[in-house]
Amino acid sequence: MIALGLLPVLGAGLGMGVLHAFDPDHMVTMSSLGARPDARGATTRFALSWALGHGGILVLAALALLLFQLPMPGALPAGAERLVGIILIAAGGSLALALWRGAAEERRPSALRSKTPFLIGMVHGTAGSAAALALLPVGLLSPVQGLVYVLVFSGGVLLGMIGFGQGFDRISALIARRGRAIEQALRGCLATLAIGMGSYWLWSA
């Protein structure tokens, strides 16, 4: 049974998880994937896959720390931060290329692209802020409590990201009703934002 004194810690972990889902790099990356013409309405599904990858890698890292006293290698978060920049550029470039080619609206994402959010979530899960928010409190708790904390934090990330995905899909549907020109212009702006943010991310990493 979880001690009552731990409940505020878990509540804080849940709240930080929800807020973490709305980090700018997360939102821009997932928006770029969901804005592709061949991924209409798929952002919620992508968000779920992303959150599972993000939470899964954190749970593995927590188990390694709690059971074997193996901390995450110091170079891994830094490398993941650089990879986040590359992912942002790739997501924005992929969206720009799809718009330039005029990909058919009715096409569905390929099997490979459908797995991409899960892998991106794993990268984001090993980047600096996620590791700090989820794993630093673990060292102050018992193994069971630490694992519960990481699970609750990851549950918060899942809730936040699914909420973001549903909101993005609904807004996209509303914009689509306004006309194709407006929709394409906004998609182009999003692609530019992703490429610009990714370039800055790499430069500042």
Rank of each mutant, 00 (worst) to 15 (best):
M1H: 07
I2K: 13
A3H: 12
A3R: 01
L6V: 09
V9G: 10
V9M: 06
V9T: 15
V9C: 10
L10Q: 13
G15Q: 08
G17Y: 00
G17V: 02
G17C: 00
V18I: 13
H20Q: 13
H20S: 02
P24R: 11
D25G: 04
D25A: 04
D25R: 06
M27I: 12
V28Q: 02
V28M: 04
T29F: 02
M30D: 02
S31H: 03
L33F: 04
G34I: 06
A35M: 12
R36K: 15
R36N: 12
P37C: 09
D38M: 08
R40P: 00
R40Y: 10
G41W: 09
A42T: 05
A42N: 06
T43P: 07
T44K: 05
T44L: 09
A47H: 07
A47R: 01
G53M: 00
L58S: 04
V59R: 03
F68S: 11
P71I: 10
L76F: 08
P77A: 07
G79N: 04
L83G: 06
L83A: 15
L88E: 01
I89K: 04
G92D: 08
G93T: 02
G93V: 05
L95M: 11
L97Q: 15
W100Y: 14
W100G: 12
G102W: 14
G102D: 13
A103L: 14
A104G: 15
A104L: 14
E105V: 14
R107P: 13
R108T: 06
L112N: 09
L112D: 13
K115D: 01
K115G: 12
P117Y: 11
G121L: 00
M122P: 05
M122G: 15
V123E: 04
H124V: 05
T126I: 05
T126D: 04
T126A: 12
A127G: 04
G128D: 04
A130I: 06
A132L: 14
L136M: 10
P137T: 11
L140W: 03
S142I: 04
S142Q: 02
V144Q: 11
V148P: 02
V150M: 06
F153W: 11
S154C: 08
L158F: 10
L159K: 01
L159F: 07
M161A: 06
M161I: 02
M161G: 05
G163E: 04
F164M: 05
G165A: 09
D169H: 05
I171S: 12
A173P: 01
A173D: 05
A173N: 02
L174I: 00
L174A: 11
A176G: 01
A176S: 13
I182N: 08
A185E: 07
G188E: 07
A191V: 14
T192Y: 06
L193H: 03
G196Y: 06
S199C: 10
